[in-house]
Amino acid sequence: MSEPTAPHVPALPAVRRQALRHHLMNEFERPARRPQRMLVLAPAAGVLAAAVAAGVIAQLWAPDSAPLIVTVEQGEHSGATLFLNQMAAAAVNKPEPPSGEGEYVYIKSRGAFAELGDGPARLQPVREREIWIPRYERGDGLLRQPSFDLPIIGVIPERETLTDMTPNAEVVDLPSDPDELLAKLYRERDERGRGNSRDGAAFTAIGDILRESLVPPQTSAALYRATAKIPGVEVVRGVTDAAGRRGVAVAHTEGNRRDEWIFDEQTYEYLGERSYLVADTADGPAGTVLGTTAVLQRAVVSKVGQRPER
């Protein structure tokens, strides 16, 4: 099930270079307290999401302010299955992405992420990020975001060429049957033999695809139906993304942390993500936000570095 005119290639991504950096960090078991502060890079362990060439905009939370706390609402297990299947039914009626009209997928997002260790977690400023992903063929992409100097990872520059990226067509080339899709994700988790639980790893993998890919309608439907089969998935209502848009979240809790994908309740458009603690820990009380994002724009462009017309 690949994007129109895309060549058939082996399924699910060899993790993109920038995603690999975060996944590497995420595989370490974090002690109760760290000797130094470390930045949490993504709500659902996917990509470095935070910001870009335009610099700091809409700074909702200052890094020196008190931790942002949200109410830990009770999720709805039965509501999750209904909501996800409604989204799947709506997705198949949406138009296909334009074929043959551009060689790169462009995604612009906004995010804020917390530092952990040596006291309660604190959100960093909200910033923007832009990424250009090869659409059909493996090749170089581009990432624009503020520079970071991170423990273990080192310096991540403001503008970085992402070499030998997995193309969008390969990322979305997935089984159309939700049971097969979920079995594939479980199998890949078992092959790794580390990290999140099988259910948590499957939720994370689907979130990675939804976050920074251009997904055809049939693939979106399969992803939503597969998510509905993951034990522990819930719906949380009245959730706000990093752009201030309200929606409904599809959530999964792993340990003391809940990860949420946020959707518009009427259109089912993917809005962003949120991650927070659901219990009191050394990193803060229940409700402490670890990350919040918003996808602002998805488009197809002709060349790397080109921005779409608004």
Rank of each mutant, 00 (worst) to 15 (best):
V72W: 09
I262D: 00
S99D: 14
G195V: 15
L223V: 07
F113D: 08
R16N: 08
R16C: 07
F263L: 00
Q218K: 07
E191S: 12
V9R: 06
E260P: 01
P175L: 10
D190Q: 14
T267L: 01
P178I: 00
I262S: 06
L20K: 15
L182E: 04
G75Y: 00
E188R: 15
P151M: 10
L60C: 13
A53M: 09
R122H: 10
Y224W: 08
E128S: 05
A242L: 01
A80M: 02
E137F: 10
E103Q: 06
P95W: 01
E73P: 07
G100L: 10
W61V: 13
G139D: 01
I230L: 09
Y270V: 00
P175S: 02
M165L: 02
P231E: 09
G255S: 10
Q74S: 12
A282W: 01
P217I: 00
A6E: 13
R37M: 07
E115D: 15
R33H: 13
T204F: 13
D164G: 03
V15N: 14
R30V: 14
K229N: 06
G55Q: 02
P31V: 12
G284W: 13
T288Q: 05
H23C: 15
R258P: 04
L68E: 12
F263Q: 00
A183P: 03
A205M: 13
G141K: 05
E160S: 08
H77E: 11
R30C: 11
P98Y: 11
V56G: 06
A282N: 08
A90Q: 03
T293E: 07
E103A: 12
G284P: 03
G195K: 12
A243V: 00
V248I: 10
L12I: 13
G119L: 00
P285H: 13
V56C: 02
V126C: 11
I153F: 11
R192C: 13
P10L: 12
G195E: 14
I153L: 14
R127S: 11
R237M: 06
A251T: 07
V56R: 06
R110E: 03
V172L: 04
L210W: 03
V52L: 04
A80R: 01
P146D: 09
I262M: 03
D199I: 05
W261S: 01
Y106R: 08
P134W: 02
R307T: 05
V300T: 07
V47F: 09
D199A: 09
R129Y: 06
E96S: 09
E265M: 02
P285Y: 15
M87R: 01
I156E: 14
S147G: 11
P125Y: 05
A169K: 01
Y270L: 01
Y186M: 11
D208Q: 10
L12A: 11
V289Y: 07
R189D: 11
R110W: 05
R194W: 13
H22D: 14
T227L: 05
P146F: 06
I69L: 13
T161M: 09
S220L: 13
E269A: 09
E76Q: 10
K184Q: 12
A45P: 06
D118V: 06
P120E: 05
E273H: 10
V52M: 09
D140Y: 13
G207W: 04
P146Q: 08
V304E: 02
